[in-house]
Design a binder for these strands. Structure first.
Ligand SMILES: [Mn+2]
Ligand SMILES: [Mn+2]
Ligand SMILES: [Zn+2]
Ligand SMILES: [Zn+2]
Lengths: 166, 166
DNA sequence: TGCGTCTTCGCATCGTTTGCGAATTGGCAC
DNA sequence: GTGCCAATTCGCAAACGATGCGAAGACGCA
């Protein structure tokens, strides 16, 4: 998204007002490379401006979204994530912990919708790609857990059914 | 997803029971090429079996999802969509009316996550692709609306601001 | 037919988001 | 600086999709 200074001009030009609440949110969004939820932004904004309302955060996010300054992302269940990164990019998401990261992807324009007839005249103008998998941390944690299970099984001779086995 | 008969065997083999509610849902899901919501399935199931509970629909969908018989999809806000199509495919979605269609896509394995270092060890094992755009119906409707506006503007000389202009 | 477990289903509840409207405030004209 | 007015904030109610819970009912097997 654009800088707080630029957004200030854009807002003014549209007859919208520059409030301290909006300034805080502009700044927070401009500075992050994450994909915060409304609640996360509310928490961060509350540090700088105690008393700011969650309602205002939602309202400002809706405005910025409709102005195209942020994208609203949805990954399955849970709250919406907001993406201030305006570059042409896609996402990877960890199945285990839900972590999201940006990823630049090559070869997108070589994707070919086959079976064009079944598209029935649909005209795509954008594409979202999400890679699903496991992040490095969760992979490490999983290996550690396996090691523990193995150790336990090897060490102990009791035929207990491991709790997390299924 | 598999046929109702096959699912019956699978369920029985796992000690799960075959109830009329499940049979109705198996059948509805097996026969559709759409991406129904829980509410939609509830409505359809209620036709064949008045009195079936929405709770049961949710429960059965959760089971089928965890068994891998259906996929749960999320497109922005709104309720989850369930996809009984087990083939390797992706989706197109109309920005205007929300309609969803399956699309087979070639070239998926030629996608290259660039900037591999910033992936920080993330290991993708699946990818979801959604094409965004406008479906044929909405494109037609939009053309028709534009024609109406043009006609009105041309015919009338009053400098009224069109209501839907912004 | 009888029993035990699995299932159904209504209701309460939860987490996220939006509707509403009174009170407040930014920005401009003077 | 002052006053005005539209834009904004914000608390609360409520919508919405989904889940937890547990009493009542039904499937499947002996
Ligand atoms: Mn992003
Ligand atoms: Mn599909
Ligand atoms: Zn993870
Ligand atoms: Zn459409």
């Amino acid at each position: 998204m654009r800088s707080p200074a630029e957004l200030t001009e854009v807002f003014r030009a549209q007859g919208l007002k520059i409030t301290p609440q909006r300034q805080v949110l502009f700044s927070l969004l401009h500075d992050t490379d994450q994909h915060p939820t409304a609640e996360m932004l509310f928490a961060a904004a509350s540090d700088r401006m105690p008393g700011i309302s969650l309602r205002t955060v939602y309202q400002t996010l809706t405005e910025l979204t409709s102005m195209g300054e942020v994208r609203q992302l949805a990954f399955g269940s849970g709250p919406a994530r907001f993406d201030p990164n305006g570059s042409d990019h896609h996402h990877v998401r960890c199945r285990t912990c839900g972590a999201i990261r940006d990823v630049d992807v090559g070869g997108v324009d070589r994707l070919e919708p086959l079976d064009v007839e079944s598209l029935g005249g649909f005209e795509p103008d954008a594409v979202s790609i999400v890679f699903h998998g496991r992040c490095a941390e969760c992979a490490r944690a999983s290996v550690a857990a396996a090691a523990r299970t193995t150790t336990t099984t090897t060490t102990s001779t009791t035929p207990n059914t491991p709790t997390g086995g299924a």
